[in-house]
């Protein structure tokens, strides 16, 4: 059974009181659940959150399913999101994505067998002057080449 940590429960209580309506706390609370649930939001964690927040499950599912930053299925420990929008594509983002998928033996949007990595193609991340670029978990990595991106990821995998 999924449960938030005590710290997580306090966070939810604070967020519920922070905005003009309780409903506005759904996005921040889903982020918290995702953080404490290995990077994704499971159906059971939605039921749990609904009880904790005293809000209908349908409201939480509405938000969960609309926004792309909530993962509805498990993701790798490293969630590598390569921008595949126009400026990045002009400068080799798709070749970069292909290279990473091949190197780490994983299909786009899927989780690697060892659960360590997911590579996703995402829309513009607002860093077009440093194209091509990727986001790994919370951080941006910019001005990439296939080689430099591979090195960054390998470094992080070894560090884990």
């Amino acid at each position: 059974m999924f449960k938030l940590s005590d710290e997580g429960i306090n966070f939810v209580k604070k967020e519920l009181a922070r905005y003009e309506t309780k409903r506005s706390a759904i996005i921040p609370c889903l982020y918290r659940v995702q953080k404490e649930n290995d990077g994704w939001v499971s159906p059971e964690s939605v039921s749990y959150l609904s009880e904790l927040m005293e809000l209908p499950e349908a409201w939480i599912n509405e938000v969960l399913n609309f926004y792309t930053m909530f993962n509805k299925k498990p993701v790798g420990k490293l969630h590598v999101q390569v921008c595949n929008n126009i400026s990045c594509c002009m400068l080799g983002a798709r070749e970069l994505t292909d290279h990473l998928c091949k190197t780490f033996n994983v299909k786009p949007e899927e989780i690697s067998e060892d659960g360590k990595i997911t590579i996703s193609k995402v829309e513009c991340l607002g860093s077009c002057d440093t194209a091509p670029m990727m986001q790994i978990n919370d951080d941006y990595h910019e001005n990439l080449t296939p080689g430099s991106a591979e090195k960054i990821i390998k470094g992080m995998l070894n560090g884990n």
Partner: peptide, 24 residues
């Protein structure tokens, strides 16, 4: 307020829906 990944929330009424805790 931190959004959660939706271009449409840059449209002002979409943003308002999102801030209200709904889909944008």
């Amino acid at each position: 307020y931190r959004g959660a990944g939706a271009y449409i929330c840059g449209e002002e009424t979409g943003m308002i829906s999102s801030l209200e805790g709904k889909k944008g």
